[in-house]
């Protein structure tokens, strides 16, 4: 399994990046069970920038965790191109994350004991064909801050390090969980700009989970979630650039 997932070019990229059918996720059992996903159906084409909207508890983070290979579904299926994520073993999911997936989190989640450069190297070390760690930091405009520890960086800078870390492996898909949630508007726009650049310049499929509806304006596709199901799916005819977004 690991071997099969290790070569990105073996993926049949004619298929949609993700194909989700009847996906369910239940936490706990019996009367105390929480149904986070109640049968989601969804297709995400390769190379799109997708925004996943929804209130707290709508199931969007659960969906992202399952598509990102961080968590397992309770039922239904999810495919990454021609590979069935829901059928993979732990080792298979690890390899999937290792070779195809980049993550950006709301709270950056940098290693406090490593410098910016080292945080990126953490990923380039185990990737097959990574960008240089310095190059990745250059892409997010942090080439001057490579030797700083997270504690010496502002929130926006930390998030950009996190993005550099996520794109350094040239992921097929980049998942962003509330990437601007902890940032002010100016810094938030800078971060969104970087994500947009990653999508257009590297061709990476970018999936952003957020409850900030304004972000939706920059997406190819907007998916609205509520109560663990896909409530609405719209394709933007006119996309705004990150700088144009109303905050």
């Amino acid at each position: 399994m690991q071997a099969a997932m290790s070569a990105p070019d073996q993926i049949d990229r004619n298929e949609p990046a993700f194909r989700v059918r009847g996906l369910t996720k239940t936490y706990g059992e019996g009367p105390a069970a929480v149904h986070a996903l109640r049968g989601a159906d969804l297709d995400i084409p390769d190379g799109e920038l997708v925004v996943l909207l929804g209130a707290s508890g709508s199931g969007k983070s659960t969906l992202l965790n399952i598509l990102g290979g961080l968590d397992r579904a309770s039922g239904g299926s999810a495919h990454f191109f021609d590979r069935e994520l829901t059928a993979m073993s732990d080792a298979g999911l690890t390899a999937y994350r290792r070779h195809h997936v980049g993550f950006v989190f709301q709270f950056y989640n940098l290693m406090p004991s490593l410098t910016a450069l080292e945080n990126v190297e953490l990923v380039t070390e185990i990737a097959d064909n990574p960008l240089g760690a310095g190059e990745a930091l250059g892409l997010v405009g942090l080439d001057k801050r490579v030797d700083h520890f997270p504690a010496e960086l502002s929130g926006g800078e930390q998030q950009r390090v996190a993005i550099a870390r996520a794109i350094a492996k040239r992921p097929t898909v980049l998942f962003c969980d509330e990437p601007t949630g902890a940032l002010d508007s100016t810094t938030g726009r800078q971060v969104l700009r970087v994500l947009q650049d990653v999508n257009t310049e590297l061709g990476t499929t970018v999936i952003i989970v957020t409850h900030a509806a304004a972000t939706a304006a920059m997406a190819h596709r907007v998916i609205n979630m509520a109560d663990g199901t896909i409530r609405e799916e719209t394709v933007n005819k006119h996309r705004l650039s990150a700088e144009e977004i109303e905050w």
Binding site: G68, L70, D90, A91, T94, A95, Y96, R97, R98, H99, V101, F103, F105, N109, M111, L122, V123, I126
Partner: peptide
């Protein structure tokens, strides 16, 4: 545990 989760999210194996 957050850092461990993160490393796992990056694709580091449990053994690593």
């Amino acid at each position: 545990r957050m850092q461990i989760g993160l490393l796992k999210a990056f694709g580091y194996t449990s053994a690593e």
